[in-house]
Design a protein around this nucleic acid. Sequence first.
DNA 1: GTATGATTCAAACGAACGTTTGATTCAATG
DNA 2: CATTGAATCAAACGTTCGTTTGAATCATAC
Lengths: 230, 230
Amino acid sequence: MSETTHKQTPETRERILDAAEGLFMAHGFEATSMRMITGMAHVNLAAVNYHFGTKDALIHEVFRRRLRDLNRRRLAALSAEEVAAGGAPVKPSRIVEAFFGVSIEMASDTQHGGATFMRLLGRTYTEPNEFVRKFLAEEYAEVVDRFMGALYRALPDVPREEILWRFHFMMGAMSYAIAGTDALQLFAGEFDDKDPARLMERLMSFLLGGLRAPLPATTAQHMESRRNAA
Amino acid sequence: MSETTHKQTPETRERILDAAEGLFMAHGFEATSMRMITGMAHVNLAAVNYHFGTKDALIHEVFRRRLRDLNRRRLAALSAEEVAAGGAPVKPSRIVEAFFGVSIEMASDTQHGGATFMRLLGRTYTEPNEFVRKFLAEEYAEVVDRFMGALYRALPDVPREEILWRFHFMMGAMSYAIAGTDALQLFAGEFDDKDPARLMERLMSFLLGGLRAPLPATTAQHMESRRNAA
DNA sequence: GTATGATTCAAACGAACGTTTGATTCAATG
DNA sequence: CATTGAATCAAACGTTCGTTTGAATCATAC
């Protein structure tokens, strides 16, 4: 054999996953062919089907590999806040920071592909593909439960629907923040501030500003009439 | 001929555009085939190529058809605010309302496909496909110029980069708001509040809260040192 | 009513897709 | 050193894709 003595098995899987991750991010799932993936990974065309079964299973694994760690760190961050609060409800801003801080942290990791993955993840929340959204929901189930529960406890007077929507809005802002310059170039041709620390600052200011904004008039009215009835 | 005496030309184009719009929204561009489009539109397979040339040209026309009107209304709304302000800078909140208000207005129009299109548009801002983003940038060029200029004038002390980012975040929040329940179901299985008026309220509160949030520490420091130097 | 240009139609085109196959090569076991 | 199971390889599979073709059908003008 001329090079790399092909046959250190574990490396093939990783190379495929890395290549697929980058190509999915750059071109989307459908526009990325098996031949593109195996070509970039320098493996045989049949390797994907051998190691993962189907293309869909590969997509699944690309997400599972990173999402497991991402959500484990999110839960750990929330747990740490809950311990620090000692029984009392965690402040909303700390909850938001726990969730989105980990996101941006991972998005800042350009060494191990974290940045690539987060950009892929950001645009996948709105992915039309049914089966992608299905397992995304599964992977998020526990995290959603924990964080929503914490927010409900922290804001007992705010309607849960309102909290859900605001969290949804925050997810959108974060996705665009991480997807980054791609969509921003729509608005400004020249634009290259990529310092992740400053991005984190910027995004957090915006998110907390939105979270703390006065409730819309209609919602406030509903709460008022409810309070009077009680 | 049995039905509809096939040959009222203008209707064929519209039927294709409407079908394509809905299918692109539901499945994405690549996953939507010409056969799906022509099947749903009840026209011959070759009709798309005859009327539009290629699939890409069809995609382009799907956007151009609605975007023209959308951005014309945005510019009109901003002009009205500028007239009302009579030479003085328009308040930031009014600028934001002019831009995003028109978006939600169109997203609320379930009669003429406006809602379908806005959901499609929301997820297209982050579209990987190069040529889609290209003509999106072209269609937006004038609107971006006008609105960014207005914001710069309204907030002369805020760094332009900061304004750009916050507008970017707002776009993300709006996209998720309009893409709506799709991504929200990720977080809450049962969820069906679709009243567009309340959504508009909710989103505006959030956006203005984020826009008015205190600047991040680093940015504030930069401004401080600049002020001292002057 | 016949000529004309626009539109629709059924059928086919080559290209690219995801996947499968069967032989071959590797590392490890007895 | 022969055997075994895992991994890689080149080649092909059938399907679907976007697009093209040439004949058929329409509305209109002379």
